[in-house]
Design a protein around this nucleic acid. Structure first.
Length: 465
DNA sequence: CGTCCACGTCTAC
DNA sequence: TAGACCTGGACGG
């Protein structure tokens, strides 16, 4: 699941658990035989009995989990850099907070909570591509966060256009975390699609004309990356992504580790509220007439391109599936390999409109399965989409040397801000920013509301019979 | 049963 | 630019 928004939601989740519960004892690593533990040092410092608290924050596709021991000897100062763990989620990482006797099968790193019922916060990772390292630094090869460092992210990309990766197709550069930290396969598809950008257009060509500062009310690819990430955060997360707040609701408030009832109550209330929101979104729309089996979740509804019927797909140069509509653009891989066949319904549609199209049906056909949730017959997304161009006003690329310096400076400044945070110096009033920036109000895109889209779909399906 | 596919990095020819 | 790293779900025979 995890792209920037999921990492961010996970960090909020971990923080919430950390606010409610204390932890104690060694951190348990459950590793395959071929992998060495990373937390032995930390554990030995922690000792078996020491209590500690946890907090968390994220940047792009990384999550930081910071531990604060409660009973450090007076002599030793708390140095957060010695007590932080940085996580990568790989393909399937997530955090869960469960009863200890119901530890998830693929729990890889476990933090034992104090109190009743006996609970464990665990990093769960089915495929095991996730990684963790004891450090309080973000990886130095990853750029600013698309979600929380919007302006810096923009500046950094625009300052880097001369770099060789930008000679590649835009869809491939968008997965390069040195520049698009937080973008993954679904975000790139959605961002490109919503602006009608051909995925295999040369990145530099597209980005060179973007203004350093976007005028209010306008959007472009860089802004879209941020905006869509924020939208997914607002939804509560991506595909099959469940931050188990409902479980939280049951397991958090009981243990009474926190002293004041006031705080307890405040927390309890907040958890409840979020839980309700979460449920509201996930359970959404019991389709009234037909069998009600179709439980459409909010994220599935939100997706317009990625994995959607009627969309085309190709395998990019890195072997990843790119979803798109319209023409693929000039830099299509030679072996135009397609992965999924559209569902039959959707296929009829696309075949119709494809014939003239440069980048349509792949030469070679293989047996494919329909995309899951194949019931969702969607008309090939309006032609208009293909005609819309990225808003490229603003003067063409400024001298980037100057930019580079400026941006680099700012990045390092920000980085040190991050370590301040780690240092627990909550700073003079600075801390307000992160929270509200994240929930920042989202500009409305001009796409139809979910309701409208649904009826669009239904009528399209009706047309086909 | 087998094959293909998956929201992501890494490192090694 | 391949692969390697993994588990498991969906689908085909």
């Amino acid at each position: 699941m995890p792209e920037g928004p999921e990492l961010h939601l996970s960090s909020r989740f971990v923080k919430k658990v950390g606010d409610a519960r204390q932890f104690a004892g060694k951190i348990l690593e459950r590793l395959p035989a071929n992998r060495a533990p990373r937390l032995d040092d930390l554990n030995s410092r922690l000792g078996a009995a020491a209590r500690y608290t946890i907090t968390s924050w994220s940047r792009g596709k990384e999550l930081m989990l910071a531990i604060k021991p409660l009973d450090l000897p007076e002599t030793s100062k708390y140095r957060p850099e010695e007590w932080s763990i940085r996580f990568n989620f790989g393909m399937t990482g997530c955090f869960k907070f469960t009863r200890t006797d119901e530890l998830p099968k693929h729990a890889k790193v476990c933090f034992t909570a104090v109190g009743e019922p006996a609970c464990t916060l665990s990093f769960v990772d089915m495929r095991g591509f996730g990684r963790w390292t004891p450090t309080s630094d973000w990886s130095d090869n990853r750029g600013p966060c698309i979600l929380q460092e919007r302006d810096l992210f923009r500046a950094h990309v625009l300052a880097s256009l001369e770099a060789s990766p930008f000679s590649k197709p835009i869809c491939e550069v968008m997965l390069d975390q040195r520049y698009f930290n937080g973008v993954g396969n679904y975000l790139r598809a959605e961002a490109l699609h919503r602006l009608g950008v051909a995925p295999f257009a040369r990145a530099r060509d597209l980005l060179a004309s973007l203004p350093e500062r976007l005028e209010p009310g306008r959007s472009d690819l860089l802004h879209m990356c941020h905006q869509l990430a924020a939208e997914v955060v607002a939804l509560g997360g991506g595909r099959r992504y469940d931050v188990p707040l409902d479980v939280l609701h049951e397991l958090l408030p009981r243990d009474g580790v926190k002293e004041e009832g006031v705080e307890q109550n405040g927390l309890k209330k907040e958890v409840k509220r979020e839980s309700a929101v979460q449920n509201g979104l996930n359970k959404e729309v019991k389709e009234e007439g037909d069998e009600g089996k179709e439980e459409v979740d909010a994220f599935e509804e939100w997706l317009q391109c990625y994995y959607q019927p009627g969309m085309k797909n190709l395998v990019d140069h890195q072997g990843r599936t790119v979803w798109f509509a319209g023409s693929p653009g000039p830099m299509v891989p030679k072996a135009r390999k397609q992965r999924h066949e559209s569902s039959k319904k959707a296929d009829k549609q696309s075949v119709k409109s494809e014939s003239s199209d440069e980048g349509s049906s792949p030469p070679e056909k293989r047996a494919k399965r329909a995309p899951r949730r194949g019931t969702k017959a969607v008309p090939v997304e309006d032609q208009a989409v293909t005609d819309r161009r990225v808003s490229s006003r603003g003067t063409a690329g400024k001298e980037s040397a100057e930019r580079t310096v400026k941006v680099k400076n700012e990045i390092s400044r920000k980085t040190s801000t991050a370590s301040n945070k780690a240092a627990g110096r909550k700073g003079a009033g600075k801390s307000t920013k992160s929270r509200s920036a994240v929930v920042a109000v989202l500009q409305k895109t001009e796409r139809p509301s979910p309701g409208q889209r649904r009826s669009k779909r239904i009528s399209a399906a009706a047309r086909q019979t």
